[in-house]
Amino acid sequence: MIAIIDYKMGNLRSVKNALSKLGAEYTVTDDPAAIIAADKVLLPGVGYAAQAMANLRERGLVEVIRGLRQPVLGICIGMQVLCRYSEEGDTPCLDVFDTDVRLFKAQEGLKVPHMGWNSISNLDSKLFKGVDEGSYVYFVHSYRPGLCQDTIATSNHGGLFSAALKYENFYGTQFHPEKSGDVGERILSNFLAL
């Protein structure tokens, strides 16, 4: 059973649809016991990082998530809150991944939000089994995690940033695998197979 953590950060429908398509059983929950008991945990979400952290605290989930031992996948804001700190609302985060999340620096011709299909490189994890270097995935975000020792994929938008991170049993993707066509499906099914 997969637990999708529901902490009121955006629509979960596309994540649920993607799991259904892959034949995975899931439950949508904010109950600590159900999350701890799950085989795998998904932390999705879109929105504002400081709000995401407030919602996790309100539900008593900060220590619960940090203590998880099964595979955990954070997507988009769910990945960002697994980092040390986010500039978006100046908030400390869960401090799993060894990097901070910062706004894309304004520069000539750089569109923010970073929205659309971009390629991922330096793929270095079982999460990307069967995924070619340079494959395109779908991003929508204005803040991005920096490079660090936990980086398992990079992308470039006015400079390199972490497109995916891993620390022990924790994984995170800045892009949306649930919206990234066949490549995204492959990444999700790799996560389910961990």
Partner: peptide
């Protein structure tokens, strides 16, 4: 559409 299409 949402349940069958895996692009935005």
């Amino acid at each position: 559409i949402a349940s069958h299409i895996n692009i935005p």
